[in-house]
Amino acid sequence: MSVDIAPRLPARPFRWRLSRLTPLIWVGPAVVLIGVVVILPVIVMIQSSLQKISPDGFVLGDAGFNNFTKLFAEPAFVGVLLRTAIWTIGVVVVTMVISLALAQLFNARFPGRRFARWALIVPWAASVMMTALIFRWALDSNNGAINVVLNRLGLLDAFNSNESAWLGNPPAAFGWMMLVAIFVSLPFSTYAILSGLQSIPEEIYEAADLDGATKWSRYRAITLPLLRPAIIVAVLINVINVFNSFPIIWEMTRGGPAYATSTTTTFMFTLKQSFIGESAAMSVINFAIVIIIVVIYLRSTRWKDQVD
């Protein structure tokens, strides 16, 4: 007869087990917030895209993929997608190029640097809708400030309605909207890159100077590689913000005339007035496009290597 003489481990005290649950106190509210604010709306959005919904908001039954079929058959759908791509890529690329130059400028010492940094915050701190309204008023064809100045400089014929009606001409209106989007996107990108510049040790530049490196070679071989984490963050946030931008386009042109200046976001909102199911389908496509863009960008930039 054998006797089990193996020593028994002491029971875990209740306080020790309770301490392992302590992180949930800190993580729990964030998880609940994400579930309510992000996951739940996504579920409702996908569910709505598969339902037949009246303009009054009543669910009339299942629609399957009919909403997507009708959306793809919309005459303006392809043009809106192409315009959204031009809008997003153009604004983000120009914003990042200008932000790199501004960050380099603000990183240098010059009289009034603090005031200049404060001034850059203004487009970021101000309401985007308010900024769009100011530009819309400035571009008014009759008495807008921009037309008045151009006319006094002799650069604009006040009697030529085609030249003065900026927001009535789709290419000109789209260009002005992109300019406004760049204007409001610059502060965040510039400060993100500026924080990256200030984290680069001066000793690296001193060593490069001893090796006879030029300013351009230092920037290309030292500054840009070390700025990659900051650039990745700035580009991702800008892509998401610009792609989903609504106030600028809506306040300046309402996406018109005839969807000529509309992106997927304003197109989705316009569809919502009469075709809620199609609008929900457009929302699903928007969400999928953003996820695909983020995944492709993160994989192409090897963001895990930057974090490690």
Rank of each mutant, 00 (worst) to 15 (best):
I98A: 05
I98K: 00
I98N: 01
S99R: 02
S99A: 15
L100G: 04
L102G: 02
L102T: 04
A103L: 11
A103W: 08
Q104T: 12
Q104V: 12
F106P: 03
F106M: 11
F106D: 00
N107E: 11
N107M: 08
A108L: 07
R109V: 01
R109P: 01
R109T: 01
F110G: 00
F110K: 01
G112C: 09
G112P: 07
G112D: 05
R113Y: 08
R113W: 11
R113V: 14
R114C: 04
F115Q: 10
F115C: 09
F115R: 12
A116T: 12
A116L: 15
R117L: 13
R117K: 14
R117T: 02
W118C: 08
W118S: 12
A119M: 15
A119P: 13
A119N: 13
L120K: 02
L120M: 12
I121D: 06
V122S: 03
V122W: 12
P123G: 06
P123E: 09
W124M: 09
W124I: 09
W124L: 06
W124G: 02
A125S: 06
A125K: 07
A126L: 15
S127A: 05
S127P: 06
S127N: 06
V128E: 05
V128Q: 08
V128S: 05
V128I: 13
M129S: 09
M129H: 08
M129P: 03
M130A: 15
M130L: 15
M130I: 15
T131Y: 06
A132R: 09
L133Y: 15
L133E: 08
L133W: 13
I134C: 04
I134T: 07
I134M: 10
I134Q: 04
F135G: 00
F135I: 06
F135D: 00
F135P: 02
R136A: 04
R136K: 11
R136F: 04
W137H: 00
W137E: 00
W137K: 00
A138L: 02
L139A: 06
S141A: 13
N143D: 10
N143K: 09
N143W: 14
G144E: 07
G144Q: 09
G144Y: 13
G144L: 10
A145K: 05
A145H: 04
A145Y: 12
I146H: 09
I146F: 14
I146V: 15
I146N: 08
I146R: 08
N147K: 05
N147W: 10
V148R: 07
V148E: 02
V148W: 13
V148D: 02
V149I: 15
L150T: 11
L150W: 14
L150E: 12
